[in-house]
Structure formats: structure tokens, C-alpha cells
Amino acid sequence: MQRISLAHGEGGELTHQLIQEVFIQSFGHSEQTQFDSAILPIPSQTIAITTDSYVVKPIFFPGGNIGKLAITGTVNDLAVSGAIPHVITAGFMIEEGFPIKNLKEIVHSMAGEAEKSGVNIVAGDTKVVEKGSVDGLFINTTGIGVIQEEHRLKPEMVQEGDSVIVSGTIGDHGIAILSARQELGLLTDVKSDCASLNHLIHELLAEIKGIRIMRDPTRGGLATTLVELCEDFHFTVEIDEASVPVRKDVQGACDILGYDPLYLANEGKVVMIVDSNDKQKALDILKNHELGRNASVIGQITSSHAQSGKLLLKTAVGTTRRLNRLSGQILPRIC
């Protein structure tokens, strides 16, 4: 059997085989899974919980695949909330006819990424759907993390002068995905930045008391993420265009497509607001870490009161542009 058939989803022998050969082989069989639910102790008063569905196209892309992304995405959502990722569950929706070889590769990289980030995959589910019902494979993951009281984020402490730091080049994932879509031809060979940030973030949280808030700028990119922060917590951020790290080839691809890297997805970056007294220390820790080599202070909080709430970009030509959320509409305004 080389491809998934509807029978793989019927709950019978074939299902059992699939689970044994594909999932157990990679994920192992932990003792928590002996019941219909995973039963596990949580070493904390406070937990963080997050869920996400992964429908990325193409399923395999330079720097990763949908499986790796499903783990890093959930791990990062927990980590930027100040939690230590603990366990993950995974649900698979597989299109009839999907190659088993590909499924194995995906599951394998999930296991590898889970191990790297130190989380256990404790429960799972598999459904097979008719051809055309999903595009290849969708994965849903839920993650639970534990919060250590001393690492709790304090967005209410944000004040004028705080620094905004991003952990590396932006837009890599967005452009990698676009390039991987064969239709565009080879745009660049840039790789997705898809990576689990929890160890790096843990180190930052352990060392630096002045971290106010963190986010992972995924869908909608750095700009949309910052706009949401500004609006939710009523502060105004001014970022300096020249100090936002962007790879040359990512910028080049953006120039051709007419995209702005500030709005492209990232899957291995964290943006944080820190007390400006801690900015150098945070930068040092980041730059010492493989995943934070290109970290940069990109701006600061310029005001923080009820009327604040804008994201401003100081452009290379010296003007200040207000940035809004990623807009679904692509409409030139130049008349």
C-alpha cells in the first residue's frame, strides 16, 4: 500500500496498521495514551493552551513541511505567551490518495521537532476524507504549556521609551512558500525560518526581567502583529524601516511581486517589547543563539496612553507612515 485510501480511515485493521506504521513509529507510544484521553500531571498552577490548524500549500517547502510547522507554530504560540511548552495533541485530515511515504516523512519531522523542543505528543487523531475534500493534508495541533510565575509577561508595564526587538530577518517564510509554489518559477532559494523558539525564549525570560510582551509575527507579518499589540494595549510604536532586518533576496522577491516584507509571514521569529535598560542584554542573548543571530532593535514605544495605539514607520526618506493591518484588498491609491 503506497497511498492513503478511504479504508485507512474506517477505524478497522487498516487504520490500526497506519497508526502502527506511521504514527507510533515516529511518535512512540507513551503511557499517557492508554486511555481515550491522555492523562497527565501538569507541574504548575497556571497553564497556557493554544490550538492551530495547518493548511500550508505546498506541504513540503524549503526549510520544512506542514508537520514541522504544526509543531513549531504551536510551540511558539506557547513560548511567546511566556509558557514552557509541555504537551501537544495532533489531528490529521488526510485526503484519499495521499502518498504514505509523504505522510511518514511529515510525521517523522513532527517527532523530530517535538523532541528538539522538548514537548510530548500525547494524543492524536486521524481522519481520511474523499478526494477533493481537503488539499492533501491538514493538521490541527493543540498545545499545553506551563507558566512559571516569575516569567509572566507584563504588558501593562509598557512605557514610553521601551524598545522593540525582532529576533531576525523577516519575511523568509512568506517568500519561501511563494517560491515553493512551482507556478511562480524560481523566485529565490530562500528557506523558511520555521523553527521552535521556546529554548531561546526561555533563556530570555530567565535572564531579563524587563520583557513586557512577546508575539510571533506569523500570518499578517510583523506589521499586523505590531498593529494588534498597539491597539490592544494602547501604545504607539515607531519602527525604523532601515533597522528592520530583511534578507536581500527576500527584498528582491518583494520588489518584483509588489509585496512588503513587513506583511509576510514568519515562522521562527519573535518580536518583543522590552524595557530599554534591558535592550542590550536581550540583544546579546539573542545574537548568541543560532535562531537570533540577526536580531535587531527596530524601534521604540513613543507614547503609551488611552489615545495611543498606532504603528508608525519611519521610512528611509524621512517620512512617517502609519501602518495598518494586512488588508485583503490590493488597491493602489495613487491617482
Binding site: E183, L184, G185, L187, L257, G258, I330, L331
Partner: peptide, 14 residues
Amino acid sequence: NMMEQMIVHQMNTP
């Protein structure tokens, strides 16, 4: 070549 694909796939092409 890129424009050709952008047009076909209606990417950022009003």
C-alpha cells in the same frame, strides 16, 4: 516571467 504567473494566479494583481 514572474508577471505572467502573477497575472495567471491573480497574485497582487488588481
